[in-house]
Design a binder for these strands. Structure first.
Lengths: 226, 226
DNA sequence: TAAAATATGTGCGCTATATCACATTATAAT
DNA sequence: ATTATAATGTGATATAGCGCACATATTTTA
């Protein structure tokens, strides 16, 4: 396992910022930094999980492979631990994670991670805080998808990219229409039609994957009303 | 705040079982045991959250009040911490919790709870383990609801009561048809029709809320196929 | 640069399911 | 016991959105 120098890292997680020099050294000794290109699989569903994955930089999709279609659970940007719950308990990956942009991941030995939880209360608390926020976010997503109709879901996804991922009203989608549909939980065709509609109604300017939000207010209304 | 004697409690959570005498004493000093009857509100959505809620005995529904309809997120039986993620971070209840059966809840001061996380690594680790399992379960539920059609969702809910809650093929539903529909994410009418169908097809014997599973195998198939 | 493979757009019919309307039956309140 | 209230069942209707089929455009590979 390639060793990493965590002490010098300026992209530490909130939790790792609670660690002292000695703990950071230990962490580095049990940590492997790996780079991924778009499309590379970072975590493979159903595989044995022996490491905690910390997303140091980049963007990934968390997805689950069904019999036919792939369902995208969520899109996560750095910094974040990904698929943390899979690392505990049954030690099996419940989901896959695939890079959408060039991405750096630190794989941390799960026993070392546990040791840090046991020995550093501040670290443990930060992990719990992270998991709490993540879980509430997930619930929010699930409910949105459960209650809204297609147009609202697509509006949601666009606002998510604009506000959470890129902090800009102009951005290039990191996913295909098919993936966007899988994230919104709708069919590719419906997704396509809604993009056309948004473009015609001057809510978006759509140029392939290049998106500009023209009518933010209306888009929000659509997202809220469902 | 009524004091509780946690040392003598034989319904301790996995986490609390990691505590020593002194810690259990402290816990008891910052803990109020309260009883609820079916229909009683245990946690109110949007209210300020100052306590962690431990479900010592009984059964509750976790739900979110929409503008018109109520969506039931999940049903949780004792022993379990409920709405834990709401207690951290923004300290606001994101969901409501309502008793479905006579229920006992221990409200634990959140600062005491944090203190235990900071000071006892085994306690912290158990909490993380609990949250991990709970989150994976939630994901599973969300995905089911996202991908299955109505008949599969209803089959799911019935199997959930039989296998997870009551461990029996004969049981009395603790919820109305309307609530069951809100849990499955479908309309009351559709739910009603599916019950009739299951009864006609001799998959279930339905007598109001009294349910007997007659054809477990078929019910599982329906649940899996969606 | 050509060819193959993906990705995307769009018309059309079908079906699952929500919703309305109302009858009927339980349950709670007086 | 009797009324009021809530819960449940069921027919009829409307429609959102899926899936198919195929055209077109874009990207990748050879």
């Amino acid at each position: 396992m390639n060793k990493t120098i965590c002490q010098l890292c300026n992209l530490k997680s909130d939790a790792a910022q609670q660690l002292n020099e000695a703990e950071l050294f230990m962490l580095g000794e049990n940590c492997a930094e790996t780079h991924f290109q778009p499309g590379d699989i970072i975590i493979k569903q159903d595989a044995h999980s022996t490491n905690v994955a910390y997303l140091k930089s980049g963007l990934v999709k968390i997805h689950i492979e069904g019999s036919i279609k792939d369902k995208i659970i969520k899109i996560t940007k750095a910094p974040a631990y990904i698929c943390l719950p899979s690392s505990f308990g049954d030690k099996k990956n419940h989901f896959s994670a695939t890079a959408l942009e060039p991405t750096t991941v630190c794989f941390i030995n799960v026993d070392m991670f546990k040791k840090l939880i046991y020995e550093n209360g501040d670290f443990a608390y930060q992990i719990i805080l992270d998991m709490s926020k993540s879980e509430l976010q997930n619930f929010h997503n699930c409910l949105n998808n459960a209650q809204k109709q297609n147009i609202g879901r697509v509006a949601d996804v666009i606002l998510f990219f604009a506000n959470i991922i890129y902090n800009s009203n102009t951005f290039r989608l990191p996913v295909t229409r098919e993936e966007l549909a899988a994230l919104a939980g709708i069919s590719r065709e419906s997704c396509s039609r809604i993009f056309t509609e948004f473009n015609n109604d001057k809510i978006l300017e759509v140029n392939g994957r290049q998106i500009t939000i023209l009518n933010d207010k209306l888009l929000r209304q659509i997202s809220e009303k469902g």
